[in-house]
Design a protein around this nucleic acid. Structure first.
Lengths: 366, 366
DNA sequence: TTCGAAAATGTCACCGGTGTCAATCCTAAT
DNA sequence: ATTAGGATTGACACCGGTGACATTTTCGAA
């Protein structure tokens, strides 16, 4: 005697006790309850849940009504087991800037809201030799529906290769086309760098320095290349001794700026590859006794929250990070709908002029 | 004829094809593979996986050897289905300070590293009337192993009540004992506020203002109470017009500080309830043309990364947020080990004196 | 009216574990 | 040598869905 195969199963017999008659949300209804009440097989219910087109409209409506009445929601674990695919979206990151990560998270969460998917965090350390293996084992165990890879993880080609082998979808967020093809969110970092360069050149600066990120980040090169291009268009060049690495970190920014200021001809303006380093530059510049922007102009990149919190507020190149995260998640979920339409979404940076840049003293802007 | 009950099942017969003889990591071994090779029932393997004490040492060793050889890891989804409990730890938050959240995340991830658990993010909006229901439905669907509730979600008593009904474990991070009993991480925010007050009083400030958080946060009251206590010990009082709310946000901090500076007797020092608001105070103070710390001293609370990035660096009350997150996760996982030892872990804040505070002009510190 | 292919629905095993309870194995006590 | 009772281990159903494939409807064409 399993379930009662009684004749009167037309009544909402068993299942959660229906006291008066109102729908019951207690104890969680299962697909079996729905099937019984709708008098169809659980497979058909399953079809309705999964939006299969092979269900007669009338049947579908009836089942949906029962689902609504019971407040039924399919069990993610059971589905995951049967499908060999969970409802988790993994964010795999290794990024020195916490602000960047939070915003990506927010964007992803925006897109995931209302879906069956959940965001799981999976930080990694690319400097460890086994980082790819760790991610592989994460995938093998948890079978995430997909992964989102922001920089610099997105630029990890060995990882991409491994991911292609493994059975996961993923969307990468990066500033360039990458070797391994995949769906991606692309940012035109070069344009951003160019905008920064143009802005400073337009203000009349001639002696401009650049603090860039780690050479292992593609964005480092993109931003610098765009920047140099703009300088060139203004008839300027980035002197080798005016380009210093700052590791995309605050501390790196401080050190790099100190180095620049110690030069025989300190720069009038500094373009930092991200806001963190720009913030570091603020500190170094102040420590050295210079004023911002009167003595030295500073431009950042990313427009993370700190940019607006500094004094004076930081002129920076805005990247719509949250929107990018959201777009990445949306792209990833498209597969779920079956329609794999877009494969690449491009975002353009935009310069946000605030208080940290001005024409050099005794000069007028162009 | 289910499994082959053949005589020669001593050989590693089926399972993943053992080509030469080396262990196979492909295609993920299951508990059945392990059971077959170890010549025991899958239930016994299950016992070993779950550290059941009722397995003979010899059997256990043999099974462990097979597990190692096969590189077997149990499937979280299958376990979750059978146990009606997933391996997810949910972080439910609604906190205006992103820095706080990131650090909690980091701490949790530190503790979860190496365990079978994954961290899923579950932001919520306490101002929405259905926020408790949403969390309930999240729990019902995903059956998280446990939740971690930082402020201000931790102070949500209706939520706590609902959680007690539901079948979830949770650890709260808060600054006071709460009505509903539960395991928790507690911070002595009062002591922190007192440290800030003492520091400013010791420097010789007499006219001290306070920008506090939303009244709906317990920490707001704790911090203020401690602060006032310290002032009282120094023979000072916090005048009502010198206490303004700043919503724990940057913008709120700016507005609150502007309000304070517009008073007939602007304060010589400001204690902000968190670093975000302190950062806002920096901006307002500068806009008004005052210097920090020469004209006005500022103290923050939390010691989030921005504190060290400001110029001058912010004197603040440090809360070991990351460690707290880690402790919360550890507390949560204790249940997993069966031994529910500690129920409360207390962290004490500590004042970090940096460049934003100094004796008022023309005065010497005590 | 009849027939065949497409449309709709159902059957049944299985995903990879765990819970319950029965069966078997030991070991010390009789 | 027996035997009771705890220590181990196994059998089997089940968690709540999905996949592959079989079966039944449905409906236009012959």
């Amino acid at each position: 005697m399993k379930h009662e195969t009684d004749p009167d199963d037309a009544e909402p017999t068993s299942g959660p006790q229906t006291a008066g008659g109102e729908a019951v949300l207690r104890g969680k209804a299962t697909i079996n309850d729905v099937a019984r009440l709708a008098k169809v097989s659980k497979k058909t219910v399953s079809r309705v849940i999964n939006e299969s087109p092979f269900v007669k409209q009338k049947t579908r409506d009836a089942i949906k009504a029962v689902i609504a009445e019971l407040g039924f929601t399919p069990d993610p674990q059971a589905r995951a087991l049967a499908r060999r695919k969970s409802f988790l979206v993994g964010l795999v990151y290794d990024n020195p800037s916490p602000q960047y990560v939070v915003n990506i998270q927010r964007g992803i969460l925006d897109a995931l809201e209302g879906t069956d998917f959940q965001l799981v965090l999976h930080p990694c350390d690319r400097s460890k030799p086994d980082h790819v293996a760790r991610i592989q084992s994460f995938i093998q165990q948890h079978k995430p529906f997909g992964l989102i890879l922001p920089p610099s993880v997105s630029e990890d080609e060995p990882l991409a290769l491994a991911l292609n082998e493994a059975d996961v979808d993923y969307v990468r967020i990066a500033s360039v086309e990458l070797d391994t093809p995949s769906r991606m969110i692309r940012t035109l970092d070069g344009d951003g760098g160019a905008a920064a360069g143009r802005h400073l050149a337009d203000l009349g600066h001639r002696n401009i320095a650049h603090i860039h990120g780690p050479l292992s980040f593609r964005s480092t090169h993109e931003r610098r290349a765009g920047f140099e291009r703009a300088l060139a268009e203004a008839g300027l060049v980035l002197r080798p001794d005016m380009a210093v690495e700052g590791g995309y970190t605050f501390e790196g920014g401080v050190a790099a700026a100190e180095h620049l200021l110690a030069q025989p001809h300190p720069p009038q303006a500094i373009f930092a590859g991200n806001d963190e380093m720009a913030t570091g530059a603020y500190v170094a510049v102040r420590r050295a006794g210079f004023r911002i922007p009167e003595d030295i102009s500073i431009v950042g990149f990313d427009d993370t929250p700190i940019a607006g919190r500094l004094w004076p507020a930081l002129t920076t190149v805005r990247l719509p990070i949250r929107e990018m995260g959201s777009a990445a998640a949306t792209l990833l979920l498209q597969t779920a709908d079956g329609m794999t339409t877009k494969k690449l979404i491009t975002f353009s940076p935009e310069i946000i002029v605030r208080g940290s840049t001005a024409a050099p003293e005794g000069t007028e802007a162009t």
